[in-house]
Amino acid sequence: MQELIQALVAGVLMGGIYALIGIGMTLIMGVMKIINLAHGELMMVAMYITYVLAQYFGLDPYFSLLIAMPSLFIIGVLIQKYLLNPLLKVDSILPENQVLMTVGVGMVLTEVMRFIFQADFKSVKTSYSSTAFYLGTISFNLPMVVAFGIAVALTICLFYFLLKTDVGKSIRATAQNKEAALLMGINAEKITVMTYGLGASLAAASGTLLLPIYYLFPSIGGPFTLKAFVITMLGGMGSTVGAIVGGVVLGVAESLGATYIKMGLKDSVAMFIFLLVLIFLPGGLKRLTKV
């Protein structure tokens, strides 16, 4: 029983961070109907920003959220504006050209970082990196709890933004029905640029929160990209609530899978769930709850 609870706790806490990655992806996929295969790489760039700030300026990783997020917003805007949007106007054989572009972008981001920082591992040492508190015998890793809390806070802010502001409403409208939104006079180009920036800065947040507990190397992004789209499919494209649920479900599934099946097959568990959802529940949890 105790193991089960500990595994659940570990899974839910991890799920909080996954959810942040997932929300960014779900917005991008919802609005643009493309898979952003550079998502994990954007997160990686933010982690390097945080790393540099911590290493050379002694800035606490949580504080660098305020720098990493806006920086990634700008990077995201530039990528969307100059690399992805122009593709809409180009005649090409495959409609997936934007997806393929994100592959290229991800590759270049990874390689640029590898060029600057070399391939070896970097980590940010904080006084609280391995601090834990205990409820009974169940341990809670402090930075993970903080990350979970910040993830929740960011999600609430995001909700407010999406529900109350004009831009937010336009993003939601575009995510729900692009054609209708265009007919209503929404400037699609501006919305996509905003969304990609927003998605990138959410990825940045998750990366920054992850850094105190994990470490960093240039090709760290790939596995997180995979997790992000698993979450998106689980929750349903464009659904932020879905992404939160999806993130937690994924975290718990991985944790339980690794505990009770086999550690080495941890990621396969996620992929398997993903396939089942793709095939039997296309549209994800959104379809069940209509949120």
Binding site: M29, E96, G264, L265, D267, S268, M271, L275, L278, I279
Partner: peptide
């Protein structure tokens, strides 16, 4: 093949990763 476009692409990634992990384990 019951999936289309990006969904097909995602499914192939997922199956590829499953193959790799099963082969490793």
């Amino acid at each position: 093949f019951r999936l289309r476009g990006p969904y097909f692409a995602l499914a192939t990634i997922a199956i590829g990763e499953i193959f790799r992990q099963v082969a490793e384990n």
